[in-house]
Design a protein around this nucleic acid. Sequence first.
DNA 1: CGCGTATTTGAGCATCATCAAGCGCCGTGG
DNA 2: CCACGGCGCTTGATGATGCTCAAATACGCG
Lengths: 234, 234
Amino acid sequence: MMRRRQSCLDCAVRGRTLCRALALERLLQLNPNSSRRRYPPGRLIAAADPVEDWFAIVPSGVVKLTQSLSDGRQQIVGLLFPSDFLGQPFKRASPCAAETATAVELCCFERKAFMRLLQEEADFTRLLLERTLEEVDIGRDWMLLLGRKSAEERVATLLLLMLRRMPGHDHGSELSQRQFELPLSRGEMADYLGLRIETVSRQLKRLKSAGVIETRGRTLVVQDLAALRTRAKE
Amino acid sequence: MMRRRQSCLDCAVRGRTLCRALALERLLQLNPNSSRRRYPPGRLIAAADPVEDWFAIVPSGVVKLTQSLSDGRQQIVGLLFPSDFLGQPFKRASPCAAETATAVELCCFERKAFMRLLQEEADFTRLLLERTLEEVDIGRDWMLLLGRKSAEERVATLLLLMLRRMPGHDHGSELSQRQFELPLSRGEMADYLGLRIETVSRQLKRLKSAGVIETRGRTLVVQDLAALRTRAKE
DNA sequence: CGCGTATTTGAGCATCATCAAGCGCCGTGG
DNA sequence: CCACGGCGCTTGATGATGCTCAAATACGCG
């Protein structure tokens, strides 16, 4: 894992993340306390048991939050996309582990610096609260999916979620709004959807033969967005 | 729905709820802005679409938060027990509806009063943040259940959850730690567990014939707590 | 007591899981 | 350049868990 310093001024996600609650001078003053780390795909960032002593923003890449049963059954309980936040401010133990799905950059702060922001910057706290409340809602949407949706509905819903949150390579083109690199393997999709790998594969095939989507390697193209929405029951 | 005023000093959940972040004088000053409402079982408190203009603490009873698909499939995505909080501070629309499971009391605040607390009382905001982060974790635990646990494991887990959170009628006795009134019908359990009503019934029967639990009407007695834990895979 | 609703019970079935090959892509090394 | 091997993905056959439909029973309440 590499570390380096980077100016907050160059940060691609500054306007969309927690940091936007900070005045510029405060941000620059904080800059020396932050460090960028880069992880390859499939690397453990933080185990479940001991809580890490730092907090992070995700400037790029996708992070999986997983939870497991003692017998090995695993469920992905959350995905972090660029601009999302990683950390457990008030707890000493986290129930879930964090792992990279794709290559990931993290912008990390030490616990102490972060907690001081929470003390001193009311806007920062309020924004974190707002983000956390959104996180609750996102979790609840997923509970509806896990509890009540069929396999096809689940897969379609996940594709729409990823389409919404994956940054397109070329933002100008029309295509970029329909096309993205899958950040998850079949196994990871299954772990997020509460399905088995074979079921995910079969449902993707169904969507392909119905002309709703197309895949070229890891690239996914949504041919018929309306149909995908219908099948997702959103 | 009845409304009446009640002194915060008499509140049964004051020490465990958001209010404990407030100084006594602030609390008393807030008191006139709060009103108690009582609801019978099975009553809609707030629909999904329009966000309510008030916030509430639950001093007694159990509230269901439900989310539905257009075709009627329903999932309970959260339960509120005494001392829990109900409301959507920053959103104008809520994804889920709130309904009473049992008879419920709510201690309600107008939006304006609540938002002012968020502005002026940093400790209050911090405590709400802490509670919200816990809510995220609770949701994630439930995702693991919905995605990966078997029917029996789900039912056992729910019984343990209710045992933990239902206040015993007589706190002194040993029995009260093993026994409680079920706040949910079979159908509601099913909606929370992502199962069908018949499946819940059958799994309860299995637990009964195995001597793990016993039911007398709506009262549930846990005969073998260790066995229940084992079957819950917790 | 009798009705309406909640719950239980049973029989058959569908969806998704499991088990087992087989395929394709890609990097390695001959 | 191609054979080899590994891994991720696909495909097929079979089976189990939980769903559906249907009916019986229990329960609460007038």
